[in-house]
């Protein structure tokens, strides 16, 4: 039983960042802008917020410090994503190229500035954020160890953002307009929707969530930030497609991917899996292979937003 609790808790550490970033990607793609820069935005968000944790480590600690770091990560991500929004919306640039440029820029920037600040590229921080057990809830049998022990507030924040995303996307005027821009921007425009503004909103939301995802990825799994989020942004892109651009399916996809990542990271500590003698590389590969297979079955009638990746041109006929 303890093994199951352990795997479940580990899975959460990997699932939540994927969930957040994929949801972010969803907002961007639903508005019609492909955001391949998720990886770079995560890196930037993680970098600034971990620098904050590093600098305030002596004076602050605990959940308050983490909350401020969360705000910093989201703000950084939103700001950095503006570069992508400007290129894609105003300059009508190829969105994949602009995203690739940002992905290159982010780690280089993090290493360069990190070296100037600390002399080395790793930015250390003290992890004072782990919640051993949530009062009262943590002592519930079964559910307690699963959801309320050895956890972080970011886990709950992740689920909160999931609920909010569903609400915003399907139950608000904003969500309807955003989806319209991704499907048929001309129609949305003729109904009086400001397509450019909606696309800016989509990209900025994706930036904020990706920035947050970067921090959420680093905090539970490491005690320093080494200018990389190890391909999580690209994995989140796979989650987004696996989840067919729909929030609930994105949750399932990120749980599956998170489980695979957790097994790859922790399998040597689990007697049953260790005895199988399968290389951790196989577990690392499975999410990507699974995504390829899902792509084969779903791409013929893909649920992807129809106008995705095509710069919206008001004058086009």
């Amino acid at each position: 039983m303890n093994v199951i609790y352990f795997i479940f808790q580990q899975t959460m550490f990997f699932t939540i960042p994927l969930l957040l970033v994929a949801l972010g990607g969803m907002f961007s793609e639903r508005s019609g802008i492909i955001n391949i820069a998720l990886e770079g935005i995560m890196t930037m968000g993680a970098f600034t917020s971990v620098v904050f944790l590093n600098r305030t480590g002596g004076v602050m600690g605990g959940q308050g410090q983490l909350l401020i770091a969360i705000c910093i990560a989201m703000a950084t991500g939103a700001l950095f994503s503006l570069l992508h929004a400007y290129a894609s919306v105003n300059m009508k640039a190829d969105q994949v190229i602009s995203g690739t440029a940002l992905n290159m820029l982010a780690p280089a920037f993090a290493i360069f500035i990190g070296r100037i600040l600390n002399g080395v590229q790793q930015v250390q921080f003290n992890n004072t954020f782990r919640i051993e057990s949530v009062p009262v809830l943590g002592s519930i049998p079964l559910l307690g160890p699963l959801f309320f022990q050895n956890t972080y507030i970011t886990t709950y924040l992740g689920f909160l953002i999931l609920a909010l995303s569903i609400l915003v996307l399907y139950r608000t005027r904003f969500g309807l307009r955003l989806r319209a821009c991704g499907e048929h921007p001309q129609a949305a425009d003729s109904a009086g929707v400001n397509v450019y503004r909606m696309q800016y909103c989509g990209v900025i939301i994706s930036g904020a969530l990706s920035g947050l995802g970067g921090l959420v990825f680093v905090v539970p799994t490491s005690t320093n930030f080494n200018a990389t989020v190890s391909g999580y942004g690209f994995l989140a892109l796979a989650v987004l497609i696996f989840g067919q651009w729909k929030p609930i399916k994105i949750l399932y996809a990120s749980l599956f991917f998170g489980l695979m990542k957790a097994i790859a990271a922790a399998y040597s500590g689990i007697p049953f899996l260790n005895n199988l003698g399968i290389s951790s590389n196989l577990y690392k590969m499975i999410p990507y292979i699974a995504t390829l297979i899902v792509l084969i079955f779903t791409s013929k009638n893909s649920q992807a937003p129809r106008a995705e990746g095509i710069p919206y041109d008001k004058g086009a006929r």
Binding site: S279, K284, Y288, K300
Partner: peptide, 30 residues
């Protein structure tokens, strides 16, 4: 995948990147 299943080549290639990287690591190491 692109020709027969209409899979976006960018996404498929990203997946192939990681499959290749982990696969090579696996074989070289073992």
């Amino acid at each position: 995948l692109k020709a027969f299943f209409n899979v976006n080549e960018v996404i498929a290639a990203i997946m192939m990147n990681y499959i290749g990287m982990y696969g090579v690591n696996w074989i070289v190491k073992s």
